[in-house]
Simulated scan of single mutants.
Amino acid sequence: MKRDSKLNRRTLLTASGVMIASPALLLAQSAPRPQADTDLQRNASSFITHEWQDHFDQLGRGIIIADTNTMVLQHWTTDGAMRIYPTSVPMTDDLTRRGYTEVTEKRENPGWGPTPEMRERDPTLPAYVQGGDPRNPLGTRALYLSWQYYRIHGTQDTRKIGRRSSSGCIGLYNEQIEEVYERAPVGTQVKLI
């Protein structure tokens, strides 16, 4: 009998604690979120994906949509498989070109020479950097677009990804541009938005 009374007291104390704590738990759920949670929610909500059908009539040889606002590149292959990659984008709106283009050429370890406008902004830039050189801003692969001087390419400087840091191109981590390079043939449709 004595054992039952201990069990009942324990049950009573536990139940009382739950009843006392319940209003606090309800208030905690309705309280404003801390700043860190708000930042996380804002970052996740800024990750907007697009449907290729909203921009193109058919998949053709594949589709790349690079969103310069959310810094995301989406790539669809001919079978409809889609992958998403974080990117770097142009530093300013006047360096950003938007619209339709296509992949016209692909190069492994491309060489790089600054555009005349880049040399004007920074005369200390080298005239040319060989492919494979760690100073080469095009990284390990480049997809050349029908627009002169515009490319989707890798980068040796991984700090640039997720930032406005290019002079007009779309940059990806080297590992990721290598994936896109393998899956995107010449003729892949591209839209920068």
Results as ranks from 00 to 15, higher is better:
T77A: 12
M91E: 14
G62R: 07
V89F: 12
H55E: 09
P86K: 10
H75P: 02
M71A: 11
H55K: 10
I84H: 13
V72A: 02
Y85P: 06
M91D: 11
I63D: 01
D54R: 08
I64N: 03
D54L: 00
T78V: 14
D67Q: 05
L59D: 09
T70Q: 09
L73T: 08
H55V: 08
R61M: 01
N69L: 04
T78R: 14
G62E: 04
L59Q: 10
T77W: 09
G60F: 04
D93P: 00
T70V: 13
A66D: 09
T68M: 07
I65F: 02
L73W: 05
L95D: 00
V89E: 10
T70P: 07
D57C: 03
L59K: 08
H55C: 03
R61L: 01
D79T: 15
P90S: 10
T78F: 03
L59R: 10
D79I: 11
H75W: 00
L95M: 13
I64Y: 01
D93Y: 03
T87H: 12
I64E: 01
A81P: 05
Q58F: 10
F56G: 03
W52S: 08
T92M: 04
P86M: 07
D54P: 09
A66M: 09
S88V: 08
L73M: 14
I84A: 12
T68N: 14
D54N: 13
T70F: 05
G62D: 05
S88N: 09
D57V: 08
H50T: 04
H75V: 00
M82A: 12
S88F: 03
V89L: 11
M82I: 12
T77C: 09
D54I: 00
G60K: 01
A66K: 01
E51I: 00
D93K: 00
